[in-house]
Design a protein around this nucleic acid. Structure first.
Lengths: 190, 190
DNA sequence: ATCCTAAAACTAATATCATTAGTTTTGGCG
DNA sequence: CGCCAAAACTAATGATATTAGTTTTAGGAT
């Protein structure tokens, strides 16, 4: 029932992640993955339904790992310290796995349920932290959106080489987080 | 000296922008542009040096138009009001020209001089505004980076459908800008 | 032990790209 | 009116994804 074992969807996705992190998400092609695994590209179709599904798997994996990293960082640190650690975890993830991070916002179909669910767990994680700042309901959702915008923008600009000048990036991040936390009071009116 | 006039680099780039905005940056292929212009794709090589150069032109055009929109918004409105208007102009640009906006951070070579120059004009524009908040030198650069991160993250999340829930996006943006302005004081220590 | 079968690999083929080489067309200038 | 260079074209090559159809093989059944 299982000729030539060893190959399955997970192994394919793992190879794709390695290629993405080493060469960029654009370099993740079925041909490249097949080469890395020592098979011909049509063989991959026995385990995964084409490039679209592979890219969807990358997005879901990215969201899950990102959530795990953020959740671990939030553990036992309420309030501003949690936001600092979550931010650090977020940016570290993007730095350590730049190709996988790219996949976060580049799924073949952003409207798919599985993507929304995975993203939702991240939103709720951050939303819980906002409660420590006295934000609830719509206000906390707006705050989460602001927080995500800030972190994603920073991560993406850093990844894409958008910060040209030789000025310490960690300092930029720390100051941005501090400014955001100070400004959080602005959301209370909502 | 000019058989079959009418075609030149600018016309090609314009067609590419229309395709990008209507179908996404990924749909900008030489084949698609040639089809839109009613020629065969090799003909484009008489005017532009391949897909790479076309994509570079898109990035440069995007940066220039973005800068123009931001500069117009800053006109005659110093301080926080300027930041609000600049933010609005930035996000509007990304909304009106989503495909072109995508090109801002997806040049074939982010390290190229022309990209750095175009991005630099935007940085300096925002940096001037930071002076009204009493920020100079490194502090103002960190602040500009934070501002860009915020705006790019918001624009990108909105474009890619990253904001799932049905909660007003303009409100999210307004609150985020207000929070950032309030938090700007945090940069003064630097 | 051998056989059978279904999974998993393969080859072959089609279609879409980018790109290069070489050919043809054409419009303005002498 | 013909020349010629620019700009279009066709043809060809080499990636890529994907489908169809064939071969291989591992492990359970006999």
């Amino acid at each position: 029932m299982s000729p030539r074992i060893g190959m399955d969807k997970q192994i394919i996705v793992t190879a794709a992640v390695e290629i993405a992190d080493a060469e960029g998400l654009e370099s993740v092609t079925l041909a490249r993955v097949a080469e890395k695994l020592g098979v011909r590209s049509p063989s991959l179709y026995n385990h995964i339904n084409g490039l679209q599904e592979l890219r969807m798997q990358l997005t879901l994996l990215a969201l899950n790992r990102l959530h795990a990293a953020m959740a671990a960082a939030a553990e036992g640190n309420p309030g501003e310290e949690a936001l600092r650690r979550i931010s650090q975890a977020y940016v570290n993830f993007a730095r350590m796995q730049p190709g996988l991070y790219e996949a976060v916002l580049r799924s073949p179909d952003p409207a798919e349920d599985r993507v929304g669910e995975a993203a939702g767990t991240i939103v709720r994680l951050v939303q819980q932290q906002m409660a420590f700042f006295g934000l609830n309901g719509d206000a906390s959702l707006h705050a989460v959106r602001g927080f995500r915008s800030m972190l994603h923008g920073f991560a993406e600009l850093e990844r894409a080489g958008g910060f040209g000048l030789p000025l310490d990036l960690d300092t930029t991040l720390e100051l941005m987080i501090e400014a955001f936390c100070r400004g959080l009071a602005a959301y209370k009116r909502t």
